[in-house]
Design a protein around this nucleic acid. Sequence first.
DNA 1: TTGTATGCGTTATCAT
DNA 2: ATGATAACGCATACAA
Lengths: 338, 338
Amino acid sequence: MVTIKDVARQANVSVATVSRVFSGANVVREETSKRIRDVAAKLRYAPHGGARSLITSKTHTLGVLLPDLYGEFFSEVIRGIDLAARQGGYHILVSRSYEGRGEIEETMRAMRGRVDGVLLMSPDVDADSLRNVPSNLPVVLVCSATRGSQTDSVTIQNSRGARQMVSHLISLGHRRIAIIKGASGNYDAAERLRGYRAALRDAGITPLRELERDGDFTEAGGYAAAGELLAISPRPTAIFAANDSMAIGALSALREAGVIVPKDMAVAGFDDIPLARYMDPPLSSVKVPISNLGARAVEILLQGIAQKNGHPPRRERVATELVIRSSCGAPSAGRPPP
Amino acid sequence: MVTIKDVARQANVSVATVSRVFSGANVVREETSKRIRDVAAKLRYAPHGGARSLITSKTHTLGVLLPDLYGEFFSEVIRGIDLAARQGGYHILVSRSYEGRGEIEETMRAMRGRVDGVLLMSPDVDADSLRNVPSNLPVVLVCSATRGSQTDSVTIQNSRGARQMVSHLISLGHRRIAIIKGASGNYDAAERLRGYRAALRDAGITPLRELERDGDFTEAGGYAAAGELLAISPRPTAIFAANDSMAIGALSALREAGVIVPKDMAVAGFDDIPLARYMDPPLSSVKVPISNLGARAVEILLQGIAQKNGHPPRRERVATELVIRSSCGAPSAGRPPP
DNA sequence: TTGTATGCGTTATCAT
DNA sequence: ATGATAACGCATACAA
């Protein structure tokens, strides 16, 4: 591998001068600089990032630690993170954790010296996983429970969004509204359930356990849960799924059972993934600005890195927005062309 | 930040001994080892990855350079990559390139010293982007054109998959089969188009330009293209979309136009994303083992890293598989429960 | 404007 | 079994 020494030798200068050329110190004579660049190009030299960060103690890299997220959500959140990171001149080191807590700790330790800060999305395990990781390492929690922690965080307005959607269903006359819950132990799932119940209570409706079905955020889970709900008597008249994937699975199950949406059953989801509007019928949902979520997390992390000293924890909630399409039976404004 | 020196001092040993404990050399007396581990835990010490890799010249990290991929595909390929990488004890450094060639080169240079090898997915720009990157850096091309290059690569059996699907449509009696093409300049898109034309010629049908519509791999693109196709006279009787997202957009457009699928128009996609089977009607597609694609690329890259010396280029194509559901009007075997 | 020398945190080599 | 020290590739303070 060609190093700064090789370039220096062939260009007849010291390594310091080569270093100056590549680290942007604008003090090298133009002529010298050009000669060095030429030699470097010929040798295909590129500075060694590891060595560089060892001395500057800046890696210009952000660690991203995510659970084994599903489809569209993962994609969008990474997009937002990557975009914001590169705007700040950072790269991202991504890791998916499959086995919960121990793995999170181990991964965070492995990132020591490779990243300047970490974005941790840990919706399933408690945030006190942070006890044994190197201190001084700036961390931002994403979509995770933060109670008892002093860590910065960015979350979604889950409860509020769910509450609005369920209230909307109630305003359409529904009283027996079922929910297909998200993965058990998941933070977002719990919050959405909370919003669902709150909306019912707001309207004087008692939440019923039989109308709260387990789900796992997948289409298959939504499909199965919808099947169960159809067997209940009296049937619910509306289904609120804790994410769009499950809502789509539910739509499929209803179609097969000959249940017409929204005439016989209203359906609504959460996230508003791009596909939602292409469903039949187009799916009402709670829009989550997923890529913004990632971008905001990065911005907060970058702040934390800049002012490395302690600061009061920053807590941010990205706003959701009700997107009403025809699947919930509202007198819809029709479907706008994409 | 606490370093190996701090641990050594507090544990009354030399840095060398601490190093031995953390690098797994099993030569330290149990008693000493325990004392060191205790001190390290108290101090929350974690070895500095950058410094470590500087001397071992191993980063245990793989660079992953992807275009701004869409949704499900991105998610799945990363899943496969991450899984295989972590099995080999590697992390992944991900970067999305938004602006094509120059950015690819720059990113690859920035990865020097941070990664042991690179996975490059460059379906839009030619693979000779590799001219100016550090030599000796093992690279595997994913879903990219490889002509004229000596680089290892993993691609999809695009042409074969498309050909099979279109042949299937022909076998159902269709003669006027339209295609909604993928993004222009895209390698996979070009290959799928090639397979489409080959299937037509196999059956003695002349490919018509008016039946080849531009698309961009998005739902919106598929929606628009399907609208155009409906205006052609005589109408095509089948639409083959170069990916599922566009097929889903097309289904939506057809539905709005009152065209019944598959009675009035057959539709098929490519990729077989999880959602395909939940569409109405369930979407026939060419299944691509996306996460396998990523995993295989990692395995090949790891081989390349192990035997650093030159080797004949490894070229691999992951197999596709026809998945026939009801959207193309075949006497379907019904829809299996998820 | 350029060169010399030191050190970043760690592992490898050679002693002991 | 443990310690002393050189090296990894580079950036920077200081000298020239």
